[in-house]
C-alpha cells in the first residue's frame, strides 16, 4: 500500500510535468470535437468540387452514423496515441535504472505495477467518458435523425473503457517483458488492429476483446447476451496480465 500510494502520486506528477495528460487528452477528446465538425463542414466546403453522387453520400450522415465515425476514429488514433505514450511504463523504469533507489528502500513491486495500471486506467476512462459525452452533445447540435441517446452513448463508452483497460494491461505486461518500450508499443498496435479483423467472423468474435468495439457501435443493441463471454474474458485477461507483470517485476534485475 505504501508503494502504491508513493507511485500513484509519482505517476500524477510525471503525467503533469511530462505533458502526458495533455497528449492523452488530445488523443481522445480532441476527436470528439473535431469529428462532427469535419463531417458537417466537409460536404459544405467540397460541394462545388465533388460529383453530385458523392455529395449525397456525405449528406446521408445522421446522428448514428456520425457517432459511429467518431468511434472508428477514436479507436484508430486513440490506440496509437495511448500505445506510444505509455509504452515505456515499466521498461523505462528498468532500463533507465530508476528503480534502484525505490527497490533498495523496499518498494513493493505489486504496489508499483498496480499504481501505474490503476492511474492510467482511471485517467483514460475519464477522458473516454468526457469524449463520449462531448461527442454526443456536438452530434445533437449538428445532426438530426437516428436513434442515438445519452444512454446509448454511455453504454458505448463503458465498452470502450473496458476495451482500453484490456489494452493497457497488455501494454503493461509487454512493457515489463521487453527492455525497449517501442517493441511493446508496436506489438500492442499490431495486436489491436489485427484482432479487429476477427469481428467479421461470428463464431470467434465474442471471445476476443475487440468485439467490445464492435458492440459499442451496434447502436440499438449495445448490451446483449453475446457480450457475456467477451466481458468475462476481458476481465480474465486483465487480472492474468497484471498478475504476470507483478511477478516479472519481482524477479527482474533493476540495477
Amino acid at each position: 500500500m505504501r508503494s502504491f500510494k508513493a507511485y500513484f502520486k509519482k505517476e500524477i506528477l510525471e503525467s503533469v510535468r511530462g505533458n502526458k495528460y495533455l497528449i492523452l487528452f488530445v488523443g481522445t477528446i480532441f476527436w470528439a470535437l473535431l469529428d462532427p465538425l469535419v463531417l458537417k463542414l466537409l460536404p459544405l466546403l467540397l460541394k462545388n468540387y465533388l460529383p453530385a453522387d458523392l455529395t449525397v453520400l456525405f449528406s446521408t450522415f445522421n446522428r448514428d452514423t456520425a457517432f459511429q465515425t467518431f468511434l472508428k476514429d477514436l479507436f484508430q488514433i486513440g490506440t496509437i496515441i495511448i500505445a506510444l505514450t505509455l509504452m515505456g511504463l515499466l521498461s523505462n523504469e528498468v532500463s533507465l535504472k530508476k528503480l534502484v533507489f525505490p527497490y533498495s528502500r523496499g518498494a513493493n513491486p505489486a504496489g508499483v505495477v498496480l499504481a501505474k495500471y490503476i492511474h492510467y486506467t482511471v485517467t483514460i476512462s475519464l477522458f473516454i467518458l468526457i469524449a463520449f459525452l462531448t461527442n454526443y452533445f456536438y452530434i445533437n447540435r449538428l445532426f438530426t435523425g437516428g436513434m442515438l441517446s445519452i444512454e446509448i452513448a454511455l453504454k458505448s463508452s463503458l465498452l470502450y473503457i473496458l476495451y482500453y483497460s484490456v489494452l493497457l494491461s497488455i501494454l503493461l505486461c509487454l512493457s515489463s517483458l521487453f527492455k525497449r518500450g517501442l517493441i511493446a508499443g508496436i506489438t500492442v498496435l499490431v495486436l489491436g488492429y489485427t484482432l479487429s479483423i476477427f469481428n467479421q467472423f461470428k463464431v470467434v468474435r465474442a471471445y476476443l476483446p475487440n468485439y467490445l468495439l464492435f458492440k459499442a457501435a451496434d447502436i440499438g443493441h449495445i448490451f446483449d447476451n453475446s457480450l457475456i463471454p467477451t466481458v468475462i474474458i476481458s476481465f480474465c485477461i486483465i487480472i492474468l496480465l497484471i498478475f504476470f507483470s507483478i511477478l516479472r517485476m519481482k524477479k527482474i534485475d533493476v540495477a
Binding site: K10, L13, E14, R17, G18, L96, K97, K98, V100, F101, Y103, S104, R105, G106, A255
Partner: peptide, 16 residues
C-alpha cells in the same frame, strides 16, 4: 532491505 541504505555508483532519480 528496510534496514539497508544504498548509495549506488551512478544514482538515477526522476529528473522532473
Amino acid at each position: 532491505v528496510r534496514s539497508i541504505g544504498y548509495l549506488p555508483e551512478t544514482p538515477t532519480f526522476y529528473n522532473y
